[in-house]
């Protein structure tokens, strides 16, 4: 039987390590097969519901799914940098962290795959253009480019590269904050909150199952990220010179990211009239709670003030209210078409 509760004795691998636990759980829970899921549940019910939606409702889903597919694509792309960063001398060079990072890489690739398959087989009418890979000179989907998420994913690439390519602990802290707190911990989890609401009105069963598997994987990624950040913070608190400034870096990055996230929240709700009743206020409230849990509870940060953080969200909201997203989408539609044509 493959499911005994008995722990098997290990040699060089530290099985008491939290990173090992996360890795092992990734093996047990995170190795689901996206293709099998599609076969098992099928597209039929989802297509039926999708086709029954009016254009505005489809648009709301499309805005959410755009940032998920581009986001998963971006985190999958940066996963290799995380593998490199956690094996740097700033950590204890433990194999367990690398083991988990490799699982994370697989999972992010699979998440990208899930959304790619889903989009192609269900939502394709709302995505006449989405095939371009940013690696092959493409850009993100116009909807992603139009909102804060697009900017955030680009920023993520820069921060992850800085951290992996000889970055110091503050660079690593910034990158991990952006990726695990910002993108996974608030932007994605806020997205799950939104999808839960939208599913009430438009139950896309297969999509929901996919989201459930994905959010379960993401939970481990977030625990991992917070664990990594905690290690850095502890070194700073112990007075190790090279780690000074870590808390501040985390805080600054979180404040920067909440702007992108708030803009995205507005983009997927109010700006499209919120036809599937997500409720922007409650989404922001939820995001604030998630941020508070991670930054004040888990990390016990005292580098900045909650008011400063929420003020950054307020500023972004004010900007969002004045944004003409449709015009930006249109602009990027043209750019996208040009890129597709090979210019």
């Amino acid at each position: 039987m493959d499911a005994s509760t008995d722990q098997i004795k290990a040699g060089r691998i530290d099985t008491d390590n939290t990173y090992y636990e996360l890795y092992q759980k990734s093996v047990e829970l995170g190795t689901w097969d996206a293709e099998k899921l599609m076969h098992k549940v099928g597209f039929e019910e989802d297509r039926e519901v999708w086709n029954s939606l009016d254009d505005n409702e489809k648009e709301q889903w499309a805005r959410l799914i755009s940032y998920f597919i581009d986001g998963e694509h971006a985190v999958a792309q940066d996963a290799r940098r995380i593998m490199k960063t956690v094996s740097s001398p700033w950590f204890d060079r433990s194999i367990e962290k690398e083991m988990f990072a490799s699982a994370l890489a697989l999972e992010e690739a699979k998440h990208t795959q899930f959304f790619d398959l889903y989009l192609t087989n269900v939502m394709v009418d709302k995505f006449p253009q989405y095939e371009l890979d940013t690696r092959r000179g493409g850009i993100q989907i116009p909807r992603t480019e139009a909102c804060g998420a697009g900017e955030m994913f680009e920023r993520q690439g820069t921060l992850q590269a800085q951290a992996a390519d000889g970055g110091d602990p503050t660079d690593i802290a910034r990158a991990a904050t952006n990726y695990h707190i910002g993108v996974e911990g608030i932007l994605a989890r806020g997205g799950y909150f939104a999808k839960n609401r939208m599913m009430q009105e438009a139950p896309l069963k297969l999509l929901n199952k996919g989201f459930q598997f994905i959010s379960t994987d993401e939970g481990r990624h977030i625990t991992f990220g917070l664990e990594v950040l905690n290690e850095l913070i502890e070194k700073e608190r112990d007075g190790v010179p090279a780690y000074q400034g870590v808390e501040n870096a985390i805080w600054e990055q979180a404040v920067e990211d909440i702007g992108y996230i708030t803009d995205t929240a507005y983009f997927i709700t109010e700006s499209v009239g919120d036809p599937l009743d997500v409720d922007f206020d409650e989404l922001v409230n939820r995001g604030a709670r998630l941020a508070g849990d991670m930054m004040f509870d888990t990390l016990d940060l005292d580098a900045g003030s909650a008011t400063e953080f929420m003020q950054a969200a307020a500023d972004a909201m004010e900007d969002a209210q004045g944004s003409d997203y449709e015009a930006v989408i249109e602009k990027y539609d043209h750019i996208y078409s040009a890129k597709m044509a090979g210019d």
Binding site: N196, Q200, L204, K205, N208, Q212, I214, S215, T216, G219
Partner: peptide, 10 residues
């Protein structure tokens, strides 16, 4: 904290 599962089912 698994919003996708703990939040609400479709």
């Amino acid at each position: 904290n698994n919003e996708g599962v703990a939040g609400a089912a479709a």
